[in-house]
Nucleic acid binder design. Sequence first.
DNA 1: TAAACATATGAACATTTATTCATATGAAGA
DNA 2: TCTTCATATGAATAAATGTTCATATGTTTA
Lengths: 129, 129
Amino acid sequence: MSEMSNRDDEKQELKTEHSECGGKYIDMIKKIDDNMPCEEEFLDLSELFKMLGDPTRVKILYALSQGEMCVCDIVELLDVTQSAVSHQLRLLKQARLVKYRRNGKSAIYSISDDHVYTILSMGMEHISE
Amino acid sequence: MSEMSNRDDEKQELKTEHSECGGKYIDMIKKIDDNMPCEEEFLDLSELFKMLGDPTRVKILYALSQGEMCVCDIVELLDVTQSAVSHQLRLLKQARLVKYRRNGKSAIYSISDDHVYTILSMGMEHISE
DNA sequence: TAAACATATGAACATTTATTCATATGAAGA
DNA sequence: TCTTCATATGAATAAATGTTCATATGTTTA
């Protein structure tokens, strides 16, 4: 987790006492606490995963991982309403997980960067253990 | 996404027609559809990410990624109620993302496998782009 | 065995979230 | 310009989720 930098300047004072249970771990805990990523970082991280934490969105992302396509293609591929797809695409767009361009009447969506693909694959690998 | 096998035997008939918009993509869509992972697979996948899609759980997992620790250590490290931590640990345990053992009065929790760590790191990398 | 500590859990509550339905916007073609 | 197709969006609703509070369970020690 070396990528996690510590941007939290107003970090809380470390308690000088520790409950009995983990007495021997105090130093370890203190060290971890000093390097804890800040609240905002955790929020961003969970926000990212939250986007992947819905069947419809994960399907959409999987579909797009195969190549860019328009909304009606997605609607046909998955068994989801056009409206539902559109709503979810908006969320994915806001989260910058997908991008889109207009082509005539169509809106062509695609995965915005390779990380998304990688994370999905990791997830897939995990669940098939 | 080669890890995604197709376990869905009762797959829907492919529509023979396609709306005008993506006419030229028909073959691509058909090919993608044939290889779509099944519903259950998508459910499992989104379920996994859902577990990572909450600030408290992500914090807990981050803490545990630094080493095993007991509940009260986690409570101290994060700024969360003992009850909230316990509830979330139960979910994480159900999802097999963490495991635990008892040590006297304490319950020592730890990350159940390396994938979790890897996925977290990927996520971190993504949000700091 | 009684008290203290560590953790777990059920119920209640407030919030968030995803879908649906109806409709609006926007682009292309007749 | 009128119609049609493709997509977007607002409001409403139902369901899922996370926290809190109170309390239960389980373990150690006096």
